[in-house]
Simulated assay, not measured.
Amino acid sequence: MSLVEDLEQILDVVVRIDPSFQAVEPGIVEACIRDVRRDALAEKEGEFLLSAMRLLALPANGHTRLIPNDAISVLPLRFVTVGKSVFLTKSGAVPSNSPIRKLIAVNGIPVEQVEAVAQSYLAGTPQRKRVVGPILLSWPLALSHLGAASAGDTTSYLMQDAEGQADTMVVDNSNIVPASQLYPRNEHGQMDPVWDFKTLADIAVWPGIGLSVCLPSFLETDDNRLSRSIAKAAAQLRSYAAVPLLIDVRGNTGGDFLKTLPLIDAIAESSNKRRCAVLVDKFTFSAAIVFVAILKHRLGRNLILVGEEMGDGLKFFAEGGSVVLPSSGAVVRYSTALHDWASGSIDRTTPPEVAEQILKVGKLEIDRHWTASPQHVESPAETYQRILRELH
């Protein structure tokens, strides 16, 4: 197989399938296609993937993108953006007990400068780019295109610990691992790449304080695990109708928001009897944002948004699916349908079942800005109890 076959799959998405490209100036699309074609014909796989990332990022739609994770190898370093800073959270290049440290520079180039050049390769909003961008910081080939090329056979990282002390970590460029080991395709933002949640709706009662429900994912399973979890959570919430409620959708990259409607109904039924808050972050995406939007529409001022700006706006293209490129193994995520929860508009691409639920939400403003510090770890229980106390 050749990269030309991958190119054909990408062009099918760009030219024929994905409606988000209709808003992009045709000349810009054609210029990017020429770059992708050039690299495909030269069989330069890494450069081809980067060119394709830039092409698929043109609509600024977070659901439409090239995901290189399964096709590339990276240095054994997991970087995650917390707030607006990048932190090294897990590494095979340093002892496992090393503290989490902030990234200051790569090969002598300030990380902010590298991130600025990376913007054109990353899809979606600025927040979404902070979600998917850190993988580029451990990919030597990408660094060479972002103005932070290695001078020799190693890559150096200037790091800073919690006390402000800086030190340099040097990694041999031959010390690489499959990127998917450190960067999951559905990036959730946890310190460890493997996030093994036991339940899709984890409810905890904090005596004298309130109730919390953690919703890590809205992806349905073959055994209808999501539907069953939502039904159980809705029943439990109705049993505690008068205590403060905190809903945690941090790291929830979405799924099927229609399956969550029974839970929204249960929350709304008692919204005049208690104070409610929802905890969000940049890794709250897609159907999880829709969940928050509907909840805010139903509860109004009775719902407080805590955290940081979410990973997308209220208008985006979604649905669609994924294509595995036959030669490189990279994944193309494409969209087919408009979701506009800002104005409540629909068009011919909006699925009927979604159109029935569309609401004019306007904006989702964060009421209380808060971001957890990775260097001063607070357990979820501590976070929940602290926020619930503030609701009293």
Rank of each mutant, 00 (worst) to 15 (best):
Q119F: 14
G147D: 04
K129W: 01
V131T: 05
S227E: 06
D202V: 09
P110R: 04
N175I: 04
L136A: 02
L226T: 12
M159K: 00
L143P: 12
N224G: 15
T221L: 10
G147C: 01
P126E: 14
W139I: 09
S180L: 15
F197S: 04
A201S: 10
F197P: 05
V132N: 15
G164I: 12
D167W: 05
N107Y: 00
A233W: 07
L103I: 03
D223N: 15
A231L: 14
E115S: 03
P110T: 01
S138L: 05
L211E: 04
V111H: 06
A116C: 00
G108P: 02
S156T: 11
N175Q: 09
T221F: 11
V170I: 11
A149D: 05
A166L: 06
C214K: 12
W195G: 13
L103D: 04
M191F: 10
V106Q: 02
T168G: 02
W195T: 13
N186M: 06
Q127Y: 04
W195S: 13
V170P: 02
S144R: 05
G210N: 15
A149M: 07
L200H: 07
R128D: 14
A179M: 06
N173M: 07
I104A: 06
D167G: 02
M191W: 11
D161M: 04
R128L: 09
P178Q: 08
V177T: 09
A118H: 03
G147H: 01
T199Y: 02
K232E: 13
K102W: 01
S217P: 14
W195C: 09
N186Q: 13
L136H: 09
K232H: 12
V114G: 06
I104K: 09
H188C: 08
A204S: 07
E112G: 13
P193S: 10
D196E: 12
I230N: 11
G152R: 14
D223Q: 05
